[in-house]
Every structure is written in C-alpha cells, then in structure tokens.
Simulated scan of single mutants.
Amino acid sequence: MTVDLNSRYGLNPAHSEVVEACQIIEPCDALDMGCSNGRNALYLSQLGFDVTAIDVNPSAIHMLEDIIKQEELTNIKAEVYDINRANLDADYGFISCTVTLMFLDPARVDAVIADMQQRTKPEGYNLIVCAMDTPAYPCPINFPFTLNEGQLREFYEGWELIKYNEDVGTMHNGAQLQFATMLAQKPS
C-alpha cells in the first residue's frame, strides 16, 4: 500500500488533472514544471514514474529534496531551474505544467511551450492548466501571463487532444476564473 506522502508532509493533494491524466498514462520519465513543494512530483513518483521536478524557487526545491532524502526516494530528482530559459536537457514521456505558465515571462511562453513539445517523446503527453483572460471572464488576478480563447489549442495543432476545455474554475484562494485545461498526445 502506498503512503500518502503529500498529507504526511502537509502538502496539498496532487492536482486533479494530474491524477486524471495518470489514469491513462503509463509510468514513464516525467517532468513536473513549476513543481513548487512537489505535490505532483511526489504523487507521480508513488505511481512509479521517474520524475524530474523543476522550479525557480530554491526554498521549494530544498523542501522537496528533504522529503526525497527522508523517504529514500530513488525515482525523483528536484532541480532549481528557470522555466523561462526554455532549454530542457532531456526527453520525457509526460510533461506536466499545471498552474505554472501564468507566472512566466509572457515573452517566453511560446518558447517554453515549443521546448516542451520538442522534449516530449513520440506518443508522449503534455498536460497544461493555465489561467485565461477573456471578455466573459476577465482574470481577477494580475498574472504576468494569461491565455486567450483558443490559444492553447492552437499551440497544439497536430497533436491529439485527449482533453481540452476552457472552463471556469476556482483557485485555492477562492478566486473564480477561466482556465484552459489540456492533455495532448504527441504524434508518433
């Protein structure tokens, strides 16, 4: 039986879209982009994925490294990395980028997504959840970057969209806003 490391260390549960994606994605090399304290990375490692967790915040990475060390986890590594660099150095079967793009430099988002796509193995998956700013639902939070209607779908032209929606959701702080949610599979 797997131990729920997230609750053991006081972390939020894994993002619901990560949990849902893992119902169809077999354990593989995975990248958790913008991992924060590692809630998704720990979940993935418990399912047997070999996880690389990256975040620009050294404190968050050190916290995750402490958990990795205490739990003697061998299938997860945490690295301080600025996602704006858009220069990943390995290929992955699954790249998860939930609630991360909106904190990036808007001028770098196209390059970050192109890099994610390039570093996804054939038949691999990208999961993106990102806030939107639309006429119907102006974003109430001043994020550096938000998606427009249909923008995420356009980025993934030629990929199979396993799931795609632009639904209104609630942030952990209670704010209501529209999110683009996509799970896409790269062609072989």
Rank of each mutant, 00 (worst) to 15 (best):
T2I: 13
T2Y: 15
L5Y: 02
N6E: 02
R8L: 13
Y9E: 09
Y9M: 12
G10I: 05
L11T: 03
A14S: 07
A14N: 00
H15W: 08
E17A: 09
E17N: 09
A21D: 06
C22R: 00
Q23T: 11
Q23C: 13
Q23H: 13
I25T: 07
C28G: 11
C28A: 11
A30E: 07
L31W: 00
L31N: 04
L31G: 04
G34H: 11
G34L: 11
S36V: 08
S36M: 10
N37I: 02
N37T: 10
R39S: 10
N40T: 07
A41W: 00
Q46N: 14
Q46H: 07
G48M: 08
D50G: 08
P58F: 00
S59F: 06
A60G: 07
E65G: 06
I67E: 02
I67C: 04
I68K: 11
T74W: 06
N75K: 07
I76V: 15
I76W: 06
K77A: 13
A78N: 06
E79V: 09
E79S: 07
V80N: 03
Y81V: 11
Y81S: 10
D82Y: 10
I83E: 03
A86R: 02
N87D: 14
D89V: 01
D89K: 15
A90M: 07
Y92L: 00
Y92D: 03
G93S: 12
I95D: 10
I95F: 02
S96N: 14
T98H: 01
L101M: 15
F103N: 07
D105M: 06
P106C: 10
P106Y: 05
V112R: 04
I113Q: 03
I113W: 03
I113C: 09
A114H: 12
D115Y: 04
Q118L: 11
Q118P: 02
Q118R: 14
Q118H: 11
T120L: 04
K121M: 13
K121I: 12
K121W: 05
P122I: 14
E123S: 12
E123P: 01
G124Y: 01
Y125A: 10
Y125I: 14
N126T: 14
N126F: 06
L127Y: 11
I128Q: 06
V129T: 08
V129P: 00
C130N: 06
A131N: 08
D133V: 05
D133W: 01
D133M: 07
P135V: 02
A136V: 01
A136P: 00
I141S: 06
I141C: 08
N142T: 13
F143T: 09
P144K: 04
F145L: 08
T146V: 10
L147T: 08
L147N: 04
N148W: 05
N148L: 10
L152Q: 10
L152V: 13
E154R: 11
E154P: 01
F155C: 02
G158R: 03
G158N: 02
G158E: 00
W159R: 07
E160H: 07
L161S: 09
I162G: 00
K163I: 12
Y164V: 02
N165W: 00
N165Y: 02
E166Y: 02
V168S: 03
G169Q: 13
T170R: 09
T170H: 08
H172V: 02
A175T: 09
A175S: 10
Q176E: 13
A180N: 14
T181Y: 04
T181W: 04
L183Y: 09
